[in-house]
Design a protein around this nucleic acid. Structure first.
Lengths: 251, 251
DNA sequence: GAGTGGTCTAGACCACTTG
DNA sequence: AAGTGGTCTAGACCACTCC
């Protein structure tokens, strides 16, 4: 009742945003406990002298943030954080190292145009053994230590020159956009654990049978045909995936 | 101009939803290419004889789906799918097996109340060596093969009886909700690659030095104090994480 | 039947981009 | 200056829940 919290209608900050942050703060501070019901939309609208649609916009923000949930005919409730699901997200695995402030280097070992072999025929779901592919082999280093190696193949339809920029950090979707007539529209990635092959052990400079993270990725065109495939091997003792869930502040 | 597509205003399906699906289909079919501009909100509203706010609601759906983006003063554009970031999501790692239709069994090896040791003092950021913890040790099997083992610790504040349900599948957040006065509000998970310890090799019935996936998770209370910690070891040759990105149909 | 959230409208003003 | 998306309003009707 005697709350002090208010909203500045003349501010450049949208009202719905102010209200969302206000409610978020109240929930974080425990003024509303998980499972409790929030004031009705009409009450909030009257309380702050704003339109109900604006209140709904603020509520929608918190719903999509997973902090509250609505039930038609019943009310709006503070949610319990769902902590069971794990979400590992890495915007470009390689950038992780950079963000840690380490010196990173990408070395292009090989860049060729090759014909289909048995592996590529399988991965690209084709039978034509004359199909051509762009092939990139790179090694990633951090602090003068080799920590990952990558092999990437792109279905080759355009005869465009290879740009220097691509040699520096050949991201599969980027190469495809430049060297294929297809629009990349989907990706499948599989993370597995393995131990190094002999070749990989030599490249990474580690003993045989060292545990590694293997990520295979396939890029698909709108017709679901694979247009790019890659296999990346990361030293298991140098990489880890971290995931934060729940109501942590994101700022 | 001469499009046939229309919207059924008398349908029980909301107009904004119909419109969103309609636009989504047009984008998927390539009638609007990535980078192209969509009709303005006013045009769409006039075309379907609906309110601009309803159009905006439909557009908001597609924006949050990552299919389009808006720019104030410029227009609404078809987005290019972002395929560079990898998102591995697993709603309860253990359920994965079930969904594959395999016979799964969770065996509770040990359930105790224990005092803090050095490991727990570190993980729970405490110095009090008298603090008590609930301890669960479980082994997961599929098709009569042991594939994972888990150790879970919960800060013990309530003296509630342990329910049978918890013994079946002791999910860390669930145990905490039942046996602690804290409300779990955040979680941190770290995925790493390793090879089995001697003990783990025996438990899982694999040769020494088998590659495994190790996931450590910490559950936090609102005051950022750890209230639960667990370490799960999964056989590397039986688990993999798969991630789908882009504009795949989700239905 | 009263109260809740869900949808939709018609119109207003604004901030921003472009010519 | 014209056109775009961004915000906000006041009111309406609906589907649903609960008493």
């Amino acid at each position: 009742m005697g709350d002090e919290a208010w909203i500045d209608k003349s501010s450049v900050i949208p009202i719905y945003y102010q209200l969302a942050k206000l409610l978020e703060g109240q929930i974080r501070r425990g003024e509303f406990q998980p499972g409790e019901v929030l004031p009705t939309e009409m009450e909030i609208a009257a309380r702050f002298e704003i339109s109900r649609m604006t209140v709904r916009r603020a509520i929608a923000e918190l719903v999509s943030a997973g902090m509250i949930s609505t039930q038609q005919g019943r009310g709006t409730f503070v949610a319990r954080p769902k902590l069971d699901n794990i979400v590992f997200e890495l915007n470009n695995f390689n950038e992780e190292i950079e963000q840690r402030g380490l010196q990173q280097k990408i070395t292009l070992v090989q860049a060729d145009i090759i014909r289909a072999n048995k592996l590529l025929q399988e991965k690209f779901e084709i039978v034509d053994s004359n199909a051509k592919f762009l092939y990139f082999k790179t090694v990633l280093s951090a602090e003068d230590e080799r920590i990952a190696c990558e092999n990437k193949y792109v279905f080759y339809t355009k005869s465009k020159p290879i740009l220097e920029k691509e040699l520096k950090d050949p991201s599969l979707p980027e190469i495809i956009a430049a060297h294929s007539d297809y629009v990349p529209i989907g990706a499948k990635k599989v993370l597995q654990v393995s131990i190094t092959t002999e070749e990989e052990a030599v490249i990474l400079g580690v003993p045989p049978n060292t545990p590694v993270i293997v990520i295979e990725q396939t890029i698909y065109a709108p017709d679901r045909k694979p247009i790019g495939w890659g296999r990346s091997v990361y030293r298991g003792d140098r990489y880890k995936l971290t995931s934060y869930d729940g109501w942590y502040k994101k700022e």
